[in-house]
Amino acid sequence: MLSPEEWEIVRLSLKVSLVAVAGALPVAFALAWVLARGRFPGKLLLDALVHLPLVLPPVVTGWLLLLAFGANGPAGRWFAQTFDITFMFRWTGAALAAAVMALPLMVRAMRLSIEAVDRRLEGAARTLGAGPWRSFATITLPLATPGVVAGAILGFARSLGEFGATITFVSNIPGETRTLPIAIYSALQVPGSDAVVTRLAIIAVVLSLLALVASEALARRIGRGTGSHVL
């Protein structure tokens, strides 16, 4: 049904999206926590910065990534020296771009779920002998989990669809940075490739649907006692 090249595109897209979500998850949770619970000067600014990729033209986000994480960018050099990771024209760069673009959506979902946790329950846990960390791990985190899962799945779906920042930052290299949307775009440039476009588009629809259904099923299972939903 799919050609080996098309399977490669699907595999690469899944890899990029999974790595993007895995990398963004702890960052998004920490940001969501700080924005939900923190009280500090500059909170509004941090909130705006986190949401910037949502409203900025993706091509600008891609260009900013190029400046920061390119071969001569400060962040790029630091990553290269510290972890031996480079982003330019690599699938890692595609994952980074997807993570940055998915971050606002993930933070939003997680922040809402953290804000919805009744802090008086944490107080109750404390009086029952739980220290702050145990109270966080046994009360706050489980109660916020449906939102964290929803945020992760939303981020995954967003990553799968990421196009503008990715093509600007890491270009369109078969097998390395040509993810599903970029492959569809490339195929559209070639006359007579309607069949390829159709197959890739169907895959995109199926993957997105699966992500949504999976998130709903997960949230139902995790939220058993509490009756929470994603959809």
Partner: peptide, 18 residues
């Protein structure tokens, strides 16, 4: 609070819903 050994019974029960 976790070291005070206070048994606190709240107005609204405050059971852990999960």
């Amino acid at each position: 609070p976790e070291r005070r050994r206070a048994g606190y019974i709240f107005q609204d029960g405050r059971l852990f819903p999960h």
